[in-house]
Design a protein around this nucleic acid. Structure first.
Lengths: 147, 147
DNA sequence: TCAACTAGTCAAGCTGATTGACCAAATAGT
DNA sequence: ACTATTTGGTCAATCAGCTTGACTAGTTGA
């Protein structure tokens, strides 16, 4: 790697950490204190609509059992509810409640607020370069906890 | 946030995830199969030299007890060894063994390899902008697991 | 010198994940 | 159509990593 990028790994991990912390603190400030950052990755999948327990498990790369437990927890806390699956009587759809949507809005706001100082310093050309650079690494549609 | 950056949070998290995965697979390919990504953040602190259990706990933001257990595990697996502390008889220094250093080299290589396709597409000016942008978010010296 | 503090460990308990077993519904093969 | 296999989901037991709480040994400072 070129010398001018030797500390890029550290910067990238540190920036991602700061983003997660920023989102989490905004979510907590919104009153959603019974959630952890890991739940946000479940919400990211559920907000798309029409996710089953198995879908959730694949998205988070955890077992179906673990996804089922997480779904149960989110239902108990009022963020998610079950709907019958339209075509498969075995499956049940997990959908966000209004409370769940409100929480995802708070998370989005947290992300925007955290990244605002960064965004303000970038020219449109630099912003485009940043998006392109990160997109080179990113696997589309796969947002989930890091470890 | 400007429209051209609306998906930046997703890209940033996804890129960080890809980096962690890249490092982890390179470390495993190097034969260090008994480690998890979280251990890398401990190594990052220990490779600086002269870390006590308490230092490690603060770095990882976990309790001293958890840090002590992790140190015990890394010692048992041969990555770390204890040294007497030069000035404080209560404390003991944790230092990487040669095996530990070899593992961190593999991790560094994994990071470089993972970021190589990205680095290749950036002009020096874009690289500088990327570093500056990420540095706006990053808290210096704080690399640790994200959740 | 003695009270307060700090480094570290032992022990017990919690939580979020795992593996394994199982049922019900859907799908594929003949 | 009938059976065999696969798939969606849950129950139960267990494990790993982390927490809180209690404690010992060594250090610091009034």
């Amino acid at each position: 790697m070129r010398d001018d990028l030797h500390d890029l790994p550290v910067l990238l991990l540190s920036a991602a950490r700061a983003l997660v912390d920023g989102i989490d603190s905004r979510v907590r400030a919104g009153g959603f204190t019974d959630l952890r950052p890991a739940h946000g990755f479940a919400f990211a999948r559920l907000s798309g609509g029409g996710a089953t327990v198995t879908d959730l498990a694949e998205h988070l790369e955890i077992t179906k059992q673990a996804a089922s437990q997480m779904a149960e927890e989110l239902i108990r806390k009022g963020y998610v509810e079950r709907r019958p699956h339209p075509t498969d009587a075995r499956a049940r759809l997990l959908v966000l409640t209004e409370k769940g949507h409100a929480c995802t809005r708070a998370a989005d706001e947290g992300a925007v607020e955290t990244l605002a100082p960064l965004a303000a310093t970038l020219t449109p050309a630099q912003a485009a370069a940043l998006r392109t650079a990160l997109a080179h690494l990113a696997t589309p549609g796969r947002i989930r906890p890091i470890w």
